[in-house]
Amino acid sequence: MENGKSRLQRAQEDAEEVKEIMLDNMDKANERTAKLSDLEDRAEELMEKGKVFEKTTVKVKQQQQGMNKKMKMVLIGVGVVVGIIVVAIIIVVSTNSSS
């Protein structure tokens, strides 16, 4: 007997210490599992938000392309009108100077 403790008492104390360590490890594992579950939920939420964002960007891109086409058409129309006006002025001036 060492320090008044029998081998059985020391073995029981060691077993109790191991039991406490194992319970603590199980608690930590449960906490990690809960945190992982939260992370999975957040990841799914972010994926959904990403899909919504992607759809929105596609719509905005299409709208911008439509606006760009309209602007090009307007600029081409203005250019044609200005060209016609210039040609008309040249014709009027040349007819007036010939007469």
Score class of each variant (00 low, 15 high):
44 E>D: 14
65 Q>T: 06
77 G>W: 09
16 E>K: 10
50 G>S: 08
73 M>G: 11
52 V>S: 03
21 I>F: 09
1 M>K: 08
28 K>V: 00
91 I>K: 07
52 V>K: 05
96 N>M: 05
89 I>H: 04
95 T>L: 02
24 D>A: 12
87 V>L: 15
63 Q>T: 10
76 I>L: 15
79 G>L: 15
4 G>R: 04
52 V>I: 12
49 K>A: 05
41 D>V: 10
60 V>A: 08
60 V>K: 04
38 D>N: 13
77 G>N: 14
2 E>H: 10
82 V>T: 13
65 Q>M: 12
31 E>S: 11
97 S>Q: 05
90 I>W: 04
5 K>F: 13
22 M>R: 05
86 V>P: 01
56 T>Y: 00
76 I>K: 14
96 N>E: 04
91 I>P: 00
12 Q>S: 07
47 M>V: 06
36 L>F: 08
51 K>F: 12
31 E>H: 10
70 K>W: 04
83 G>V: 07
87 V>C: 12
86 V>C: 06
61 K>P: 00
25 N>H: 14
58 V>L: 08
6 S>I: 09
84 I>D: 12
58 V>C: 06
23 L>S: 09
2 E>C: 09
17 E>C: 07
22 M>G: 01
94 S>P: 00
34 A>V: 06
67 M>Q: 15
29 A>N: 07
40 E>S: 14
21 I>Q: 11
37 S>L: 02
27 D>M: 11
65 Q>A: 15
2 E>D: 11
8 L>C: 06
2 E>Q: 11
44 E>L: 13
51 K>M: 11
55 K>R: 13
30 N>T: 01
75 L>M: 15
29 A>H: 05
36 L>H: 04
48 E>R: 14
67 M>H: 14
68 N>K: 10
99 S>D: 03
56 T>H: 02
37 S>K: 06
6 S>Y: 02
92 V>L: 02
18 V>R: 06
46 L>T: 03
51 K>D: 10
80 V>I: 15
73 M>H: 10
35 K>M: 09
13 E>N: 05
1 M>Q: 07
67 M>K: 12
76 I>N: 14
13 E>K: 02
70 K>D: 05
9 Q>C: 01
81 V>M: 12
79 G>M: 11
6 S>N: 00
37 S>H: 06
97 S>E: 04
67 M>D: 12
76 I>F: 15
46 L>D: 06
99 S>K: 08
30 N>C: 00
85 I>R: 08
71 M>F: 04
86 V>F: 07
29 A>G: 01
46 L>S: 04
30 N>V: 03
9 Q>Y: 02
91 I>T: 09
25 N>S: 13
44 E>P: 00
10 R>E: 09
12 Q>N: 08
54 E>M: 00
54 E>Q: 05
79 G>N: 13
2 E>P: 03
38 D>G: 06
55 K>V: 09
68 N>H: 07
2 E>Y: 13
1 M>W: 10
60 V>P: 00
7 R>F: 15
88 A>G: 05
46 L>G: 04
82 V>A: 15
7 R>Q: 14
14 D>C: 02
87 V>T: 13
76 I>T: 14
7 R>Y: 15
43 A>D: 13
29 A>K: 03
40 E>K: 10
65 Q>D: 13
30 N>Q: 07
32 R>K: 11
5 K>N: 03
43 A>S: 12
21 I>E: 12
38 D>T: 11
43 A>Y: 08
67 M>G: 03
51 K>N: 10
40 E>G: 15
79 G>W: 10
29 A>M: 07
90 I>A: 14
95 T>E: 08
38 D>V: 09
